[in-house]
C-alpha cells in the first residue's frame, strides 16, 4: 500500500455568504496522478490554494507528507510545486530570469539551479525562446514556463490548477506527456480540470467535486465499471425542443428495462438512457414510432466518465458548466485571489 502524501480532512471555507468548501476530504497516495474533476466554481481552485498554503481554511486539516501545512507552512512549501491557473508572469523578464528568480526563492545553490535549467529547457523544449521576454510568449509557452518554474526545485508533489485550459492541442500533449513521465518517476501529481477527457486520459484516480465536496472517488475504470448497464443516446430530431423531449420522455416511461433517463439540454435535448441490456432497444423504437416520434439517431456505448459524472451529480458536466457560466462574478473571484 503506497504512502499517503496529501491528506485533506473536512475542509470548510466561506467567502462571505458563499460556502466554497463544505467538508472537503481527500487522500492522494504517493506517485499517483490524481484528478479533481468538476465544473467551474465547484471549489477545486479553493482546495488547491489551501493545499499550497495560499489560503487558510476556516476549519479542517491539511497534511503533506505527514507535515501539518497550517502549523508548518514553510516546510510544506518546500515539498510542493504549484502551477496556478492564472499564469502570473513578469512580462519584462526573460523566461530564464524568471526561473532564476524562482530558484533563488527556493534557495537552490547556483550549480544546482544551472543544472536544473538545462534539464527543464530540454524537457519542455524551451531552447528557442527561454531568453526572450515573457511578454512575447504564446499561451502554450507561458504554461510550459510555469510548469518549469513549478518543477525547478524537484518538488515531491506537483499541484496544477487547470493546466491545459485554452491551450492548443500540441502544447496540451506536451504537458500531458511530462505529467505522465513525472508520475512514472515517483512524483505525486494533483491536477484540477473541467475537461472530462483530460482526467480520463491522465488520472490514475479522480474525485468528482461538486459544491465544495467530493461526491465520487476512485479510478476512472472502477467508476465506469461500477455503473453497469448500457448507455443509449437517442434523438427523434437533430435538435428537439424541451416540449418534444418531454413527449419522448412520456412515451419511454411506458417501456420496460430503462433504468434511468435524462434530457441532455446541451445537446439538442437528446435523451440519455441507461438500459438493462440491448434487448430493450427494439421495443423502444417501436413504441416511439407508434407515438409518431420515429427515431432520428440512436447510439449505444459502455459507460463513459461523462456517465459517471451524470450518475454522481444528476446532470452532465456540460450542463453544470452552463449553469454556472452566467452566475460567475469575475470581480469577486479576483478579490479572492488577491492578497
Amino acid at each position: 500500500m503506497p504512502e499517503t502524501v496529501i491528506e485533506l480532512e473536512e475542509l470548510h471555507k466561506r467567502y462571505g455568504p458563499v460556502e466554497a468548501l463544505g467538508g472537503f476530504s481527500l487522500q492522494v497516495s504517493q506517485g499517483s496522478l490524481y484528478g479533481l474533476l468538476g465544473p467551474n466554481g465547484a471549489g477545486k481552485t479553493t482546495v488547491l490554494r489551501i493545499l499550497c498554503t495560499l489560503l487558510a481554511p476556516d476549519s479542517g486539516h491539511v497534511r503533506v507528507a505527514g507535515i501539518d501545512a497550517l502549523a508548518q507552512p514553510r516546510a510544506v512549501r518546500e515539498l510542493l510545486g504549484y502551477v496556478a491557473q492564472e499564469v502570473a508572469i513578469d512580462k519584462i523578464l526573460t523566461g530564464r530570469e524568471l526561473l532564476e528568480l524562482q530558484g533563488a526563492l527556493y534557495h537552490l545553490p547556483a550549480d544546482r539551479l544551472r543544472a536544473r535549467l538545462l534539464e527543464l529547457t530540454d524537457l519542455l523544449a524551451m531552447h528557442d525562446w527561454i531568453d526572450r521576454r515573457c511578454g512575447t510568449y504564446s499561451g502554450g509557452m507561458r504554461r510550459r514556463l510555469d510548469l518549469a518554474s513549478g518543477l525547478l526545485h524537484n518538488p515531491a508533489v506537483l499541484v496544477l490548477d487547470e493546466p491545459t485550459v485554452g491551450l492548443d492541442i500540441e502544447s496540451r500533449a506536451t504537458i500531458w506527456q511530462v505529467l505522465r513521465q513525472l508520475r512514472d518517476q515517483g512524483t505525486t501529481v494533483l491536477l484540477s480540470s473541467h475537461y472530462l477527457e483530460e482526467v480520463d486520459a491522465l488520472a490514475d484516480r479522480l474525485a468528482i467535486v461538486e459544491d465544495g465536496r467530493v461526491i465520487a472517488e476512485g479510478s476512472p475504470s472502477t467508476l465506469k465499471n461500477a455503473l453497469g448497464g448500457d448507455r443509449v443516446t437517442l434523438r427523434v430530431r437533430e435538435f428537439s425542443d424541451d416540449v418534444e423531449a418531454a413527449r419522448v420522455q412520456q412515451v419511454l416511461q411506458a417501456c420496460p428495462g430503462i433504468q434511468q433517463m435524462v434530457v441532455n439540454r446541451a445537446q439538442g435535448h437528446s435523451l440519455n438512457l441507461v438500459v438493462e441490456s440491448e434487448a430493450v432497444i427494439e421495443p423502444l423504437r417501436r413504441q416511439l414510432a407508434a407515438a409518431d416520434l420515429p427515431v432520428f439517431s440512436l447510439s449505444q456505448s459502455r459507460p463513459s466518465l461523462d456517465d459517471v459524472y451524470l450518475q454522481a451529480t444528476g446532470r452532465t458536466l456540460m450542463d453544470a458548466e452552463l449553469a454556472v457560466a452566467g452566475s460567475r462574478d469575475p470581480k469577486a473571484e479576483r478579490k479572492q485571489a488577491m492578497r
Binding site: H107, A125, G140, S171
Partner: peptide, 27 residues
C-alpha cells in the same frame, strides 16, 4: 513552434529539502 519534449532528459527523483543552509544565506 510547439515541439514535443525530448524524453531523454532525466527528471531527477524528488529529494528532501536541504536543512543545512543557514537562514542568513537563504535570506
Amino acid at each position: 513552434m510547439t515541439s514535443a519534449p525530448s524524453l531523454s532528459a532525466p527528471v531527477p527523483r524528488p529529494e528532501a529539502p536541504q536543512a543545512t543552509r543557514s537562514a542568513l544565506a537563504d535570506l
